[in-house]
Amino acid sequence: MNRREAIAKVAWIMGGAVIGAELFLSTGCSSSQNSNDGLFNADQVRLLEEIAETILPETTTPGARAAGVGAFIALMVKDCYAREDQAVFTKGLSTLENKFKEQYGQSFMSSDQAKRTNFLTALDREQKEFSRVKKPDEPNHYFSMMKQLTLLGFFTSEVGATQALRYLPVPGKFDGCIPYKKGDRAWAL
């Protein structure tokens, strides 16, 4: 291969990459927080938001709702979970709502904070027992997935990292021995 052929082939490859990228961008291939491709509807995302807010409520710091954790959970389940885990999660979301209606005679969304907290506390005990006795090849409990995604979504959000954790935008020197007082917030990374 001579120099001219090499330049022509490189130009052909680069032109294809540029045209391919332009085609990809112009066909509307974009991700959106509100786009779930049918896995979750808007009511389910609002339910996830309320579940997350019950797990991490607003106190002196913002809660999960302020961080938009419901949409985060829906996006993570859609984009990152295997089909089997997606099925467990979506079935679990329906199970949660049905069990709540059986126990309290109303939907999770229309109930008060005390009922939500009591229900999720009992569900947490259930998932801990399930995790203790489950076999390695069994899927995780759906509420375990909800809790993990709530914590991940909140503490990796701007709200969680800057207002719930101690945050130093430009860290100084490394000090491996910082005094800790009971009640101090953890540091954001």
Rank of each mutant, 00 (worst) to 15 (best):
L23I: 14
E53I: 02
K91Y: 06
E138R: 10
D37Y: 14
V88M: 06
E126F: 03
N41V: 11
L151F: 15
K101P: 05
R166H: 11
I51R: 00
V133N: 12
D184C: 02
G20Y: 08
G68W: 04
G160Y: 00
A64C: 07
L93I: 03
T27S: 12
G68M: 10
S111C: 08
L168Q: 10
Q113M: 12
F174Y: 04
R185G: 01
S107H: 01
A42Y: 05
T60M: 11
F72E: 02
K9N: 09
M76F: 09
Q113N: 09
I73G: 02
M146I: 09
T95M: 13
L149A: 07
A52N: 05
K147I: 07
V18G: 07
V159I: 14
S111L: 08
T60V: 10
Q113W: 09
D85G: 02
P62R: 10
A8F: 02
V45D: 04
D43G: 12
T60Q: 14
Q33G: 15
P62G: 08
D124A: 13
F89E: 03
L23S: 13
G63E: 05
F174P: 00
T121G: 06
A8G: 02
H141D: 09
A67I: 02
Q86E: 12
G183P: 00
T27V: 14
S26L: 13
T117I: 10
T156G: 04
A21C: 13
L189T: 03
C177M: 03
S94A: 15
E22V: 15
M146G: 02
Q33E: 13
E158Y: 08
T156N: 12
E58W: 10
V18H: 04
G63V: 04
M76I: 08
A188V: 02
E50K: 10
R116Y: 02
D79H: 10
K181H: 11
F24R: 06
G20S: 13
L47C: 05
A67V: 03
V133E: 13
V69R: 00
K182M: 06
K173F: 02
I13W: 08
P171T: 00
F130K: 10
Q44N: 06
L23K: 13
V77W: 06
L189G: 09
D37T: 11
T150F: 06
Q103A: 14
A42P: 01
E84I: 08
M145F: 10
G176A: 05
N98H: 11
A6N: 04
F40S: 02
V159S: 07
T162R: 15
G28I: 07
I73C: 03
T61I: 10
E49K: 00
Q86W: 03
N140P: 08
A87T: 07
E53R: 07
Q127N: 09
A17M: 14
S94C: 07
L149Q: 08
A67Y: 01
G38P: 04
E5R: 11
D85V: 01
L47R: 00
I73S: 02
C80S: 15
D112N: 15
L168G: 01
R125E: 15
P171M: 00
G70M: 06
M109A: 12
G153A: 06
G176T: 00
M76A: 12
G183T: 05
R4L: 11
E97I: 05
E84T: 09
L39Y: 08
K181Y: 07
D137M: 11
H141P: 03
Q106D: 13
A87H: 07
Y142D: 05
F100Q: 01
K173S: 07
W12Q: 12
